[in-house]
Design a protein around this nucleic acid. Structure first.
Lengths: 133, 133
DNA sequence: CTGAATCCAGTGCGATACTG
DNA sequence: CAGTATCGCACTGGATTCAG
């Protein structure tokens, strides 16, 4: 833990850019979104996928949310959208370098969870078993 | 990108434990939560803080959400809660090892955002400027 | 000071129906 | 196939009030 300057009552994070703060927050929020995370994974694994393919691989997602999720990811430069001018329509999605990088940066979290899953579950179980006070 | 087995139409993630999947998801979701992220940071930086101190460092949080957030983090074993049996009541919060570890595992994401903040903003700007189709 | 309980407005999301 | 548009509910979270 970072030592605190003695007697320092000034606000925290003097060194943290509020813009970065907001962005981190937003980005984490984005990936935290159930669907975004799943889409990120599917595209990471599947490479290039069509709308329907994604839909099929993530059965729980509604068509509305899938569209919405993909749009937002596209806007953020995380996925690339390719429309093939044919009938029937064919639209393919794949991760951009940005999206791939973001995906990788979450590997640490992923590994942490794998390593600490049991600890968290134990903590929950213990907490829930406590005398209600 | 992981190569796909040729002709393999079986569902994705054969290697991914659905339990881990759910947990990653849940944990990311938790930290994505505005207040949890802020609390995590404050405790990481401040060490041990009282309820009111946290409240003061995160002015935007309502008392309800702060309580709720801390309870959940406590249940997950991320923070430790110490009640001092005095009047007026004094309750202190600090990160557990688990909480500290989780916090660290997010450093990668943090760094990625710092490094790619401009790229994302540029992507958004470009997306928003596109011919509306 | 710390926290639980209640009320209420905003909205995220699913279901459904329609279009190119 | 790949969307958009609309409706309605459920849940979230803020404000407020009460309590130990």
């Amino acid at each position: 833990m970072a030592p605190l300057a003695a007697g320092n009552e000034s606000p925290a994070y003097s060194e943290i850019d509020p813009k970065v703060e907001a962005m981190v927050h937003e980005l984490i929020g984005r990936v935290a979104d159930k669907w975004t995370l799943l889409v990120l994974e599917e595209l990471e694994e599947g490479g290039t996928l069509r709308f329907t393919e994604l839909s099929r691989k993530i059965p729980a997602v509604s068509q509305k949310m899938l569209t919405q999720t993909l749009r937002q990811m596209e806007r953020d430069g995380l996925v690339h959208r390719t429309v093939h001018p044919v009938v029937p329509p064919k639209v393919e999605y794949c991760l951009t370098e940005l999206g791939h990088g973001l995906s990788e940066s979450f590997c640490g979290v992923w590994r942490w969870v794998e390593g600490n899953l049991e600890a968290v579950e134990a903590a929950r179980k213990e907490f829930d078993a406590r005398p209600s006070g």
